[in-house]
Amino acid sequence: MLAGFTASLTVSGCLNGKDTTTAEVASTSDRLGRLLPLRNLGSSGSAVTNLGAGGDHIGRASERDAQAIIEKALEEGVRFFDNAPLYSDGVAEERYGKFLTPNYRDVSFIMTKTLARNKADALADLDASLARMKTDYVDLWQVHALETPERVEERIRDEIIDALLEAQESGKVRHIGFTGHDSFEGHLKMLEEIEKRGVKMAAAMLPVNPADPHFKSFVTNVLPRCVEAGIGVLAMKTLAYGRFFGGNQGWRRTEVSLEPLIPDVISLEDAFGFAWSLPVTCLVSGMESVQQVSQNAAIARKTWNWNQAELQRRIDALAPFAGPDLEFYKI
């Protein structure tokens, strides 16, 4: 059960680095036009659009399609742009440097990440990311792909948190955070360690979908802890990396082919509405075409505030299908 999770995220604070009042943020527009709904990034003081463009798919698209996806996202009011050096070996970041930052840096909230295991490598990663994206700072820099608590301890021992703080102090990074989809226990370990050290992080990225509560759940174990700590939640794997559409795409358990769950079991709006009815700041979506951008943006514009019963109905619908075949990315 997700008792107490339904909550509205009012906006205030600052958008894209500019201090604003609540009234100014509520206008939800900038020089390019009307924005998608804004939500607070935890207690960081920043507000971001409730839909973000995933960098992985931008890296895998053709260059022409990547440019079109970025420009359509901006046209539809998306201002949150996810990325990582891992995506297509830096090509995704290079495309931001070519198609996003030259003309739209002032209106874009850009996130990237590091897989590095130690401070020196992480800081080198950051400099390389900034060079590829042709920007002198990122809005959010995250430790990428946390795994088990033991692997989290190794990174902390090798000063990964110190790297984040040093980058933030230098001005190369506005906010810091962490991501992961392997083990909710890894997220809990990171939350424990930053609380122990008094480190304030702005965001955590984790799987959020109505199948998750049935199997090694991030939604039930991690999301409430983030909310309590004032950490903004970024939703990923909202469609189970596409497995809600059937098939066997992904990188684990590819020998298992699933029947589609969308649209017969749940709808696309069910999956997205589930995430947006929780205290989630931004749903990061891997969009593969301009049509998908427009489709997802249209859903994002709706008001999502399902009650407990409505959330539970979607969770119950996926009970027969939940587990490691569907959510193959969990350890």
Score class of each variant (00 low, 15 high):
167 A>P: 06
139 D>T: 09
231 I>W: 07
196 K>H: 09
231 I>L: 05
104 Y>A: 07
223 L>W: 01
228 E>M: 08
210 P>K: 03
140 L>M: 11
289 S>E: 04
48 V>I: 14
105 R>A: 15
300 A>D: 02
208 V>T: 10
101 T>A: 08
127 D>L: 00
24 E>I: 13
312 Q>S: 06
18 K>A: 13
152 V>R: 02
325 D>H: 12
265 V>S: 04
118 N>G: 08
235 A>K: 04
261 L>C: 10
291 Q>D: 11
98 K>Q: 13
58 I>F: 00
38 L>H: 05
200 K>Y: 05
171 G>H: 02
211 A>F: 03
58 I>M: 03
327 E>W: 00
276 W>N: 00
320 P>I: 05
317 A>V: 04
140 L>G: 11
170 S>I: 00
14 C>T: 13
14 C>F: 04
273 G>M: 10
230 G>R: 09
224 P>T: 06
107 V>M: 12
35 L>Q: 09
156 I>D: 06
297 A>T: 00
289 S>W: 02
107 V>E: 14
23 A>L: 14
80 F>R: 04
152 V>W: 01
178 F>P: 05
130 L>F: 12
204 A>Y: 06
253 R>Y: 09
285 S>E: 09
301 R>M: 01
325 D>I: 03
59 G>K: 04
19 D>Q: 13
186 G>N: 09
298 A>E: 15
153 E>P: 04
128 A>S: 09
233 V>T: 10
244 F>C: 11
288 E>K: 12
289 S>Q: 07
61 A>E: 06
102 P>N: 14
307 N>H: 11
193 E>N: 10
254 T>N: 10
57 H>I: 00
237 K>A: 14
125 D>S: 15
272 F>S: 07
254 T>A: 02
24 E>M: 13
176 I>L: 10
159 E>W: 00
179 T>A: 15
313 R>L: 12
145 A>N: 13
200 K>W: 08
259 E>A: 12
276 W>A: 01
283 L>M: 08
298 A>P: 03
225 R>A: 14
142 Q>L: 03
38 L>K: 07
256 V>R: 13
185 E>Y: 11
24 E>A: 15
154 E>V: 14
97 G>T: 05
46 S>D: 12
64 R>D: 13
125 D>W: 09
231 I>P: 02
300 A>F: 00
19 D>Y: 09
328 F>W: 07
272 F>M: 14
148 T>I: 05
81 F>W: 07
78 V>A: 11
286 G>A: 13
108 S>A: 15
100 L>T: 11
210 P>T: 01
196 K>V: 00
150 E>S: 08
80 F>L: 02
